[in-house]
């Protein structure tokens, strides 16, 4: 089965930056959680998820993002989303993600927020 989803990640200033590409659905959500867990197991609790190349997110994808938020809350970690499409930002806001996570315009501002 083809899919357009893929991601890459990089550790920068003690932050795990995950960049997604394509539809964030069940498969995309699983990939993000897998990438997050690898960093989390190595002690990374500052996470940036850049959704610049993901224009569509469904609610299953969002449930995986909530899973990440819950795990980070237990360890007093922080999650910042960046480069959100206005429609996705609105969806995240309604789903309550911004009660526990933040959002920033760019990766740089997100990393800067980690120190606050």
């Amino acid at each position: 089965m083809s899919t357009d989803f893929h991601l890459d990640s990089v550790v920068q200033d003690d932050c795990l930056v995950i960049r997604t590409f394509g539809y964030v659905n069940n498969m995309g959500g699983k990939e993000i959680v897998k990438c997050f867990n690898e960093g989390f197991d190595h002690g990374l609790t500052k996470i940036v998820i850049n959704l610049a190349e993901s224009k569509v997110v469904n609610s299953i994808g969002i449930s995986y993002l909530l899973e990440i938020i819950e795990k980070l809350m237990d360890k007093k970690g922080k999650l910042v989303f960046t480069n959100l499409e206005p429609a996705i930002e609105k969806t995240f806001s309604i789903m309550g993600l911004f009660h526990f996570a933040e959002h920033a315009a760019t990766e740089e501002t997100a990393i800067a927020k980690m120190g606050e």
Partner: peptide, 17 residues
């Protein structure tokens, strides 16, 4: 339940948008 209710709101909102 909260997730499901929020999801319904998202669906309605997305439909309008």
């Amino acid at each position: 339940l909260i997730f499901s209710l929020n999801h319904r709101i998202v669906q309605l909102n997305s439909l309008v948008d």
